[in-house]
Design a protein around this nucleic acid. Structure first.
Lengths: 348, 348
DNA sequence: TTGTACGCGTTATCAA
DNA sequence: TTGATAACGCGTACAA
């Protein structure tokens, strides 16, 4: 059976009254000291702080958020679950900022998609001050409810410009344009694109970059050179097979993720061709696998640490300034050249 | 500036009083309905539940935990940070159990190692009901404080048997013994072991398994065949180079992680040797990379989903039964045979 | 400069 | 079977 709120035999958690008693002042004074009021005598302040330290006092956050002060809690809202290979790197970036801003991170595990459940209500019941959202589309359930709730929200990889909501993403368009420029410089004239989920924000802008790169080189845009994927290895494999079946297959392929690039390379190997001699491949993300695979993958590195850190910093601004206009932040990428690209084969 | 606790123009969060008013009953009655008391009329119960649904009422968890009821919050305590490649898979397993038990997960980001900071106080101030701990050693700071605090704790990969604390891990010893048996079956007589951090719990028991396997095959244990690593690729690379420098290098190597196996394979390739023709390699974990690398890595799969799920289930038991004796749980592993092992070369 | 007293939203006790 | 009310720990007007 559950045996009360505390864990030990007796309640050991010191509260503000213990500190007040020890320091010989009132609880109000202790509270003022802790909340940075200047209307308190330097000596008493000193004394109070000393006992706070001695008794290892930490204000109970439940009581604190109950009286209407801050809960110092940020929620994360993920469609893909915590273990998403890309998101997890973002988390490390978030850690630093969370720490320096003093937030703890709460993962609302109860998330479910049935009608009874409301993510917003869940946040409210937890007194969450703001949320980071990842893996979302505009059409998804709960989206409007979230945006309209006025809970400060920061979206990763989804362009949301609403009151109290901002977003952050890599410079997808510029990144892919640079990749195409690079391939053009290697004399490629038949360049394909394997997309991510077709209406995901990131994939859309990467496609734009692809078109811009072609336009810049005065190369025609061909529908059949764009193969739809969904960021996965399997989708990359299938997409590549479709491209190989064309009467005039591409000599270079830009993929929307490293995993789909790996899948594409497998398809190429199965077709008896080789990378980069026959076909050049470029990935996206620079996950660990990119440098492990053979040939090592030329790819676009997303600065996930910065994305994570900035997410929290921006969310913190959104929380602290209710009048802030919608913010959007684009994080530069880095082009990592390894071994999966080579000069285009001269026409036979 | 910060503008009050709520996000919108007015406070929209319905509370228990709103529900009571709407249903024409007292707050006490609503509370009883919500907490499963049977001393409430079926009709009123019905009415109350209807308005709870209609108003989308969710009890404020801060208020709830303040009055001494449960906070439904579980903390995680990691030395390695959230992005640890192994831990992240465990998280997915935890998700399911958290959801079904009704917990949310809080990551105490403020974690720091200075003297002022007390992890236990942090948990108490957040009313955390229990913690999952990963990446810890017995000697680590805060360890005693945590164990003595009486906060229910579940350790992953660390053998802790204390009041209110239990642990879970893979069957490390058995797993490695089976690997050695397998290699012996391939006629290997010179089998090395690349360890993880030498005093980590997992590495210690894997070493035991290695010794047991050798003993079983009546093969001598040689100190110089055990190379210390720390689970990383770099350490695996270095360790392998030390093994290759022996006057009688091993023909098979058991590694404590897939990443160190990858490092070892790189060292072997650089030495002009090949896997598995010259040297057989076995990894541990079966992370995604294991199947991507060439040759695909033969390895031990840890059932991370089960480890994660059981962590929460066990912790839940620890939370709900203060008299529970220390629990320990060993999760079976699976031996995954791929392409990195072959028969031992006959002596020249 | 300090202290008293009320309220935050909920649960538990006890009287009705 | 229901309702009034005292906690829970803290922040903050307002009084001293």
């Amino acid at each position: 059976m559950f045996c009360g709120k505390k864990w030990g035999a007796q309640d050991l958690a010191t509260n503000i009254r213990d500190v007040a008693k020890a320091a010989g002042v009132s609880v109000a004074t202790v509270s003022k000291v802790l909340n940075g009021y200047t209307t308190v005598n330097a000596n008493t302040k000193e004394r109070v702080l000393q006992f706070v330290k001695e008794l290892q006092f930490r204000p109970n956050s439940a009581a604190r958020s109950l009286v209407g002060r801050r809960s110092m809690t940020i929620g994360i809202f993920l469609t893909a679950g915590l273990a998403h290979p890309f998101f997890i790197q973002i988390l490390s970036g978030m850690e630093q900022a969370l720490k320096s801003k003093g937030y703890d991170l709460i993962y609302l595990a109860q998330l479910s998609w049935n009608k009874e459940y409301s993510f917003v209500r869940h946040c409210q019941s937890r007194n969450v001050e703001g949320v980071v959202v990842f893996g979302f589309q505009h059409e998804d359930m709960n989206f409007n409810e979230l945006v309209e709730s006025g809970i400060p929200a920061l979206f990763i990889d989804l362009d949301v410009r609403e009151k109290r909501a901002g977003f952050i993403s890599s410079d997808n368009q510029e990144a892919v344009k640079r990749v195409v420029d690079y391939l053009v410089g290697l004399n490629h004239r038949h360049i394909s694109f394997i997309s991510g989920n077709k209406d995901s924000y990131a994939s859309r802008y990467r496609l734009e970059g692809y078109r811009a790169g072609l336009a810049d080189a005065e190369l025609p845009y061909r529908d059949d050179y764009v193969a739809e994927g969904d960021y996965t290895r399997e989708a990359g494999y299938d997409a590549m097979n479709r491209l190989l079946a064309l009467s005039e297959p591409p000599t270079a392929v830009v993929c929307c993720s490293d995993m789909s690039a790996v899948g594409a390379m497998e398809a190429i190997a199965e077709a008896g061709l080789s990378v980069p001699e026959d076909i050049s491949i470029v990935g996206f993300d620079d996950i660990e696998i990119a440098s492990l695979v053979r040939p090592a993958l030329t790819t676009v590195r997303q600065d996930r640490i910065t994305i994570g850190r900035k997410s929290i910093e921006l969310l913190d601004e959104l929380i602290n300034d209710s009048e802030l206009r919608p913010t959007e932040t684009i994080v530069p990428t880095e082009f990592i050249i390894r071994d999966s690209c080579g000069p285009a084969k001269p026409k036979p």
